[in-house]
């Protein structure tokens, strides 16, 4: 599955103080916070489940996964539900976002070579970077974020 075409629109969300871009076509839903059922013994970044219209959906703490630290709950917090293929299975996953900004089309600065130095988070999950209103936006490599490891 090709997640990115060159000028696809992205949903820009804030996670642990940084901005991230998610291709719009994988986004299914943006929800207000829902009660979360914790999953004991699961890996810490996917230790929750939520009910999205009758479907049981795992909740991922993106910040924790990519090394920025756990998400905080604010009045702006939302769950962003995306659909993507994990190990050959179409899966719905909810991401914790501190804030959902907007859908935007923006220019990618360094498409391939994202510098490892100067990044707060783990670089292997960043596919490219862009710029929005003077701030950097990191384009997530979702396939890698959700790859089974």
């Amino acid at each position: 599955m090709k997640l990115w075409s060159d000028n696809s629109k992205s949903l820009i969300i804030a996670v642990a103080g940084d901005l991230f871009a998610i291709p719009v076509h994988v986004v299914c839903d943006i929800l207000d916070l829902l009660p979360v059922t914790s999953v004991p013994t699961a890996r810490p970044f996917v230790n929750g489940l939520i009910n999205v219209r009758g479907r049981v959906v795992p909740l991922m703490d993106l910040g924790m996964k990519i090394g920025l630290g756990a998400a905080t709950t604010t009045p702006d917090s939302r769950f962003v539900v995306i659909e993507l293929e994990i190990d050959g299975e179409e899966t719905l996953v909810a991401l914790r976002a501190d804030k959902v900004h907007e859908v935007a089309e923006f220019e990618l600065v360094m498409a391939e070579e994202v510098p490892r130095i100067g990044l707060r988070c783990r670089g292997e999950f960043i596919r490219a970077m862009g710029r929005r209103q003077g701030r950097f936006v990191m384009v997530l490599d979702l396939e890698r974020v959700f790859a089974s490891d």
């Binding site: 059922t37 013994t41 699961a42 489940l49 190990d87 899966t91």
Partner: peptide, 18 residues
């Protein structure tokens, strides 16, 4: 309801319900 691949490593639960 079955659990997703993200919870494939969780052995204590066979599924979930609403």
């Amino acid at each position: 309801k079955s659990l997703s691949r993200l919870h494939a490593d969780v052995k204590s639960f066979s599924g979930a319900t609403i």
